[in-house]
Design a protein around this nucleic acid. Structure first.
Lengths: 228, 228
DNA sequence: ACATCCCTTTGACGGATGTCAAAGCCCTTT
DNA sequence: AAAGGGCTTTGACATCCGTCAAAGGGATGT
């Protein structure tokens, strides 16, 4: 906790700033902790500032009137969320809940806004961050509308295996949550996992999945190939 | 053409700047025209700058390996596109084609980037713009994953009718394109329109649609109500 | 060890949507 | 007017997926 300014340097949103800037940031940032399942904000809440994840995982999601949820993003350490409301001035566009015990830094809107006004470099970082998010969203939209669930799942498994660099991946969220991330429901996810298992593409062992046929998964992810 | 700087003031991305700033912008902006159907850029192309629509309509979309397209956005006059690549430095994340004969202003990446570096106000406008887009995308993701096609169509019809402020709306794109915007195919769209027509919610007349039962459409848009 | 709770899996079923095919329509061209 | 092409509509059909229901499994607490 001593060197908050030092921690900030490791966050993409704030990379490449000067020492004095980190100190200014650390003066306006407030640390907050949340228990698993605790809510950070709800859709429509007034956006009084934005957050950066220090530890844990924050789930950003939308809920339909019938209660089904679509996860927009799972924010891990170093990632920021809620920035949109800083600029639009409208309420938060989605809900945020801690998917794990989490610690975040909160940056109040007005204080941060005036910082940006003085500091083009900070603004550029922020724009890059927003752009990246935009790109991710474009990808998610593409997946949701152009691929079927097996394709989205295959893509996610490959993503996890690439991130961890291993042939065995650990699901970092419950399968129900994974279903919400993929835009489907637990039953469907379960069936498709079972099918991939039977086909020999993966080996299922609870929350551990070993990738057996990477090429096959890639075909499904790219072409939405059938699995009869 | 004389007062490019004056035109710029009407664009959200550039609102509230000083005269000198508009002149700086007009010096680096290049006007380009495209015929209907002409391509501005393709996914993966190097992002050498971004665009602002002066007239016409630009379609931003993703294409699956099988050729099906999902429209991300239809940009009208005053809207910008391609900004993301200015900051990420990666290629464009989607395709852009003129849906109508169109005129755009092109702002080269390096020149604009240095402008921003000197000008926090411009940066703030840009961030607001990116944030707005992000919010739109979040909405689109929600719709695609939480609503069925009738709900998305009803929402779009209400949006058009609200924008034009009339009970009769003119589809500004072909029905095939509308299908792509809603994340479906022409056949499905046609069937659902016919169903809404039979139910007396709308009156179909080619590309003209009269809204007969606004309340009914709202129910479908919000609750994804059945239409048996 | 047992009970309980929640997550996950499996099965049966129906509805919505995409695919394939063909006919209808409108607009332009000859 | 006739012919052609592209968009739109309609039909038949397969299938994916969500819903409902119930059983299985693992973890926690008593």
């Amino acid at each position: 906790m001593a060197d908050v300014a030092g921690q900030l340097a490791g966050i993409p949103l704030f990379s490449g700033l000067l020492r004095a800037q980190y100190e200014a940031l650390s003066r306006i940032g407030v640390s907050r902790s949340f228990r698993k399942g605790e809510r950070i904000f709800s859709e429509g809440d007034e956006g009084t500032g934005f957050y950066v994840v220090c530890g844990g995982r924050i789930k950003i999601f939308k809920v339909s009137t019938e209660g089904k949820e679509q996860i927009l993003h799972l924010c891990g350490p170093g990632e920021s969320f809620g920035e949109v409301s800083v600029f639009t001035g409208q309420g938060f566009p989605a809900d945020a809940v801690a998917a794990l015990p989490s610690t975040v830094l909160f940056f109040p809107r007005v204080a941060f806004s005036s910082l940006i006004r003085q500091d083009p470099a900070l603004a550029l970082n922020m724009m890059a961050q927003l752009s990246m998010r935009l790109r991710q969203f474009a990808g998610l939209i593409e997946d949701l509308s152009l691929k079927e669930v097996p394709g989205r799942l295959a893509k996610y498994l490959l993503y996890l295996s690439g991130r961890d660099g291993k042939g065995t991946v650990n699901l970092d969220v419950s399968k129900g949550q994974l279903a919400a991330l993929l835009g489907t429901i637990p039953e469907t996810l379960s069936r498709i996992l079972a099918k991939l298992n039977r086909r020999g593409l993966i080996r299922l062992r609870g929350a551990q999945i070993r990738i057996l046929d990477r090429r096959g998964l890639e075909e499904i992810a790219l072409e939405g190939k059938r699995l009869p």
